[in-house]
Amino acid sequence: MATTIKTRNGFVIVITLIIAILMMLMPLPDYARFFRPEWVVMTLIYWAMALPHRVSIGVAWCTGFIMDVTMGGILGVMAFSYALAIYLIARFHLQLRQYPLWQQALTILSVVFLVEFIDVAVARATLRWESWMPVLTSTLLWPLMYAVLRKIRRTFQVT
């Protein structure tokens, strides 16, 4: 006998992803643009850890494809890197959920590093130290991002 999971309020996931995409598109001054955290990747990671039956590789690929189109990059690069990142999170989501936030932040560091590495290796011709700043800022902001998204998930009872 198969058990079914009752899902509710999926629109909240979509809204948080749209907000994350808008935060990635928001213009920043030249000195701050390298420090922009990977808002979309962190949002996808949170939902993949919290609700892996709702946000998985397909959602990550579609979101990455939207980011490819909106950011004007090479088509498929972000789609692939997001899907790979969420595959890794989905594969180990039960273990990751048990980690304290500082250990989760280290996981974020490695996953965002992977996303940035794919972007640098495929799309960018030059490698500069600024290319790695989103890895650091995403890692440092993970506890706050986790707390905000968890509060949203509980407030709207997203299942």
Results as ranks from 00 to 15, higher is better:
Met71Ile: 13
Ala60His: 01
Trp47Phe: 02
Leu106Glu: 04
Thr70Arg: 14
Phe92Val: 03
Met42Asp: 09
Ile45Thr: 06
Ala123Tyr: 12
Ile86Asn: 01
Met71Glu: 11
Gly64Val: 05
Arg36Thr: 00
Asp119Cys: 14
Pro37Asp: 03
Ala48Leu: 00
Val77Ser: 10
Thr107Gly: 10
Val111Cys: 02
Gly58Tyr: 09
Val59Gly: 10
Phe65Glu: 12
Tyr82Val: 10
Trp102His: 08
Trp61His: 08
Ile66Asp: 14
Asp68Lys: 04
Val120Cys: 13
Ile118Phe: 09
Val59Ala: 14
Ile66Lys: 15
Leu101Glu: 09
Ile89Cys: 01
Arg54Leu: 11
Leu114Arg: 03
Tyr46Trp: 05
Gln95Lys: 14
Met71His: 12
Met49Cys: 05
Trp39Cys: 05
Gly76Lys: 07
Met67Asn: 14
Trp39Met: 10
Leu101Asp: 13
Phe113Ser: 13
Thr70Asp: 15
Leu88Ala: 04
Gly58Arg: 08
Val122Glu: 09
Leu75Glu: 08
Met49Ser: 03
Pro100Thr: 00
Ile66His: 14
Asp68Pro: 05
Val111Phe: 07
Tyr82Thr: 10
Ser110His: 13
Gln95Trp: 10
Thr63Ala: 11
Val111Thr: 03
Ala83Leu: 01
Gln98Pro: 01
Thr70Gly: 15
Arg91Thr: 03
Leu114Glu: 01
Glu116Leu: 09
Ile86Thr: 00
Ile108Trp: 06
Leu51Val: 02
Thr107Ala: 12
Val111Arg: 04
Gly76His: 02
Tyr82Leu: 10
Gly73Ala: 06
Leu114Asn: 08
